[in-house]
């Protein structure tokens, strides 16, 4: 019997400090056994348990794309016991990775459709995975227009700034980067909250257009009425939830929202599904 609690051993290959407050770091992991990388075949939108031996595990969305080979990447906010310890770890340290876990964004349903990605703050990780996946030359033709609305408090709080700049220069993706307020006189993108920019920049709703939203509760709370006003159907609004987790495989009992487990039945749900579920997230 395979033990679903056993993590794959990994080595920290690179650590990138992403934001000016230094609270967000991206960790690039390499599997000690290259065969484990094949077993860890994942889709954009899934997560994994980062297992820091001696401290515990944390569920984190996978920030690398399935099209990127040789490593997996996670961006971690420093918040609790495990994430704080992880932030103090060094390149070369050994830890574990358990997954991939959860469902993913509905890639089959999104095929041939327009995709609007709406993200805020540090919830941009699985969205980055999705963008890199869709922009891959082997995949780009499978999707129609791609719009990205991504906001942070300030320019220095945006994740993956080099990639954002590179995507800005492309003509096969429409980037709408925004900040709540810019302290940088050279800031040449949008200023304003995500819901406002969504109203201005998001394409009109139609049967072929899906929105993927991932962000802090306050952003979601104010973005959803905007999408409603624009006519987005609730089964065309795709959201990724977070809850406290331990097992990640639907057994330990804490991350449920009604009868669904965020870890196993989610984390991705449509707004239409969430409407019939208790609001326990």
């Amino acid at each position: 019997m395979q033990n679903p609690y056993m993590p794959y051993p990994v080595r920290i290959d690179e650590i990138i400090t992403e934001t000016e407050d230094k609270n967000l770091k991206t960790f690039k992991f390499v599997f000690l056994d290259p065969e484990d990388e094949e077993k860890f075949a994942y889709k954009a939108g899934q997560f994994a348990e980062l297992s820091v031996t001696g401290k515990g595990e944390i569920p984190i969305g996978i920030a690398s794309s399935p099209t990127e080979k040789g490593f997996v990447k996670f961006t971690v906010n420093k918040v609790g016991l495990v994430s704080s310890f992880l932030h103090a770890m060094k390149v070369g340290d050994i830890m574990g990775l358990r997954g991939p876990l959860g469902n993913s964004y509905p890639w089959e349903a999104l095929e041939g459709k327009n995709v609007v990605i709406i993200g805020g703050g540090f919830a941009f990780t699985t969205l980055r995975s999705s963008i890199v996946y869709m922009l891959d030359p082997a995949n780009r033709s499978r999707f129609k227009d791609i719009n990205v609305i991504y906001g942070a408090r300030s320019p220095g709080m945006l994740l993956y700034r080099d990639e954002l700049a590179a995507w800005e220069r492309r003509d096969d993706i429409h980037m709408h980067i925004t900040v709540d307020a810019a302290n940088d006189p050279g800031w040449k993108y949008n200023v304003g909250f995500v819901p406002t920019i969504t109203e201005q920049k998001a394409p009109e709703a139609d049967a072929d257009t899906f929105a993927i939203i991932c962000g802090p509760p306050i952003m979601i709370k104010f973005t959803q009425p905007v999408l409603d006003k624009m006519g987005y159907a609730h089964d065309h609004i795709i959201m990724s939830l977070e809850n406290r987790m331990k097992c990640g495989i639907g057994m330990c009992g804490r991350c449920n929202v009604g009868k669904e487990f965020v870890c196993k039945d989610g984390p991705v749900f449509t707004l239409a599904q969430l409407t019939n579920m208790p609001k326990e997230y």
């Binding site: 031996t53 515990g56 595990e57 331990k246 097992c247 057994m251 330990c252 804490r254």
Partner: peptide
């Protein structure tokens, strides 16, 4: 009731 927690103890 089956709910459980996972902890590392050193």
């Amino acid at each position: 009731c089956w709910c459980f927690d996972i902890q590392d103890e050193n």
